[in-house]
Structure formats: structure tokens, C-alpha cells
Design a protein around this nucleic acid. Structure first.
Lengths: 119, 119
DNA sequence: TTATATGCAAATGATTTGCGTAGTC
DNA sequence: GACTACGCAAATCATTTGCATATAA
């Protein structure tokens, strides 16, 4: 598995193993349909390509600043921003989107190793 | 003023009034330089085009879901996510980016008017 | 004159779309 | 036969890049 939040191009490669004649256009078309369907979720997350999430249940995401992998954060509640901050300003605040970032376990340990080797 | 968080294309139109021969490529090149400089900030916010912010001081943004305008949220503290949620999971969390969304004052009142008219 | 910035056009990368065809009801 | 989904290629949109020239140090 490439990862659990694949891009359209990654899905294209995966699907192609089963349907060798499928076109990238069809992949995009169907991802769009599934998104409107709310069968999947389209993530507008940092980076140039959109990513898709098969888990519909609302949850936040974290992106590794080293390798770019996206992970789910089921432990961080959806309404993590205290209510008091949602009534500020003259906007009618409807919600927010958080993108956490940091080092994934793999890159974290890789970095630790490098630090040791550089000493 | 178009708005305070212009896209590269919007800036191109503005700058062109003063420097009619400037090219869009130069605008992109200089925005990139200023971003690396930390003279401006490049916002990776929803929508297909990047937006640029002349205010370097860290602050959050809110986007109007009706008209797309971006506004600053100086009243919402930078560390609005309670500390306890930053140590969850196996990531080394370095930070997060929040994008609030809702109705801007203009669209809010416009919508209120429509509701009255539809009654 | 040497380094740096620019205009211009072409290249790139992600995504969308038009169109003719194949498969389905 | 009518509808829908598809393959394919071309179009689109934002952004980047190569290159020859202009400008500045």
C-alpha cells in the first residue's frame, strides 16, 4: 500500500493493476463522483496534489514535513478549538480545517540516527 | 484594493499599472524571493491559487465560503489548540495550520436579506 | 565585465473536458 | 435505440524554467 491518503495518480497506478485499460481521466471523474457522493473525502492539504480519504468520519490529519506522508489523527477531537474563539470577529464562523505537521515515527527515528552519526 | 491577500495574478494586474512591461514570470519570481526572505508570507489556503500576505506576524485566516475573500484573525491566538492535543500519537508534532471558514460580514447580511425576501 | 534581474515564450504538472465509441438497459 | 461510462487526446490553469537581453555594480 502506497499510503492511506493516495493522490489521483497513485490510485491510477493501483487501479491499473486490475483494470489495465483505465484512463487517468476516468479516475479523476470517479473520484469527483465519489466525493460528491460523500463516499470518500477529498483532502485539500498542503502539497500540489489533492489526496483522497476513504474514511468519511470527520477527523484531522497530520503531514510529515520530511517524507510527506499523511496520517489520521482520530485522537484529536473535531472541535479542538475552544468555542470562545469561534465567536470573535464579524464573520459567521461555520468551521475550520486544521492541518497538523511534524515528523512521522519513521522520519523521527531516522533523524535521531543522523544526529548520532554526526556527533 | 482588490483585497489584502492577493493572488499572483491579482498582484500582476496591480503592479502592471506602475510597471506596464513587467511579466507574470517576474512577479512569481519576486514573490518567491520575498517569501524566502520572510518579507511576505505565502498562504497555502483552500482554492487553486496561492495567496500572499504582507503581514509577517503569525496569525490565522478565515475564508468566506460565499465570496472567497480571506481575512485576518488577529484575535485568535496562534496556539489556539490546547497543548494536550499536541503530544498525542507517535508523531513529533511541530505545529499546525488552521483555516477557518464562514460567512464574511457582507455575505452574511446579503444572505439575511435573501431570506427575508424569500419569505 | 561580471553578476543579477527581467521579458518572453515554452515547459511542466495537476486536473478537466470534448468527443467518439463500447457496454448496458 | 437511448443512456451512461469510458478511453483518449487536447485543453486549461497555475506555476516554473530556459534563454537571450538589459541593467547595475
Amino acid at each position: 500500500m502506497i499510503n492511506s491518503h493516495p493522490t489521483a495518480a497513485e490510485l491510477y497506478q493501483i487501479v491499473r493493476k486490475r483494470l489495465p485499460k483505465i484512463s487517468l481521466g476516468t479516475v479523476y471523474r470517479n473520484l469527483e463522483l465519489l466525493t460528491q457522493n460523500r463516499t470518500i473525502r477529498k483532502l485539500e492539504i498542503g502539497g500540489s496534489e489533492a489526496r483522497f480519504d476513504g474514511v468519511i468520519k470527520p477527523h484531522h490529519h497530520i503531514r510529515c514535513i520530511a517524507c510527506g506522508v499523511i496520517s489520521d489523527l482520530f485522537d484529536v477531537p473535531q472541535d479542538v478549538v475552544p468555542q470562545q474563539y469561534l465567536s470573535l470577529g464579524d464573520y459567521d464562523v461555520r468551521g475550520y480545517r486544521i492541518e497538523f505537521y511534524g515528523l512521522c515515527p519513521l522520519c523521527k527515528s531516522k533523524q535521531a540516527t543522523e544526529e548520532i552519526n554526526n556527533t
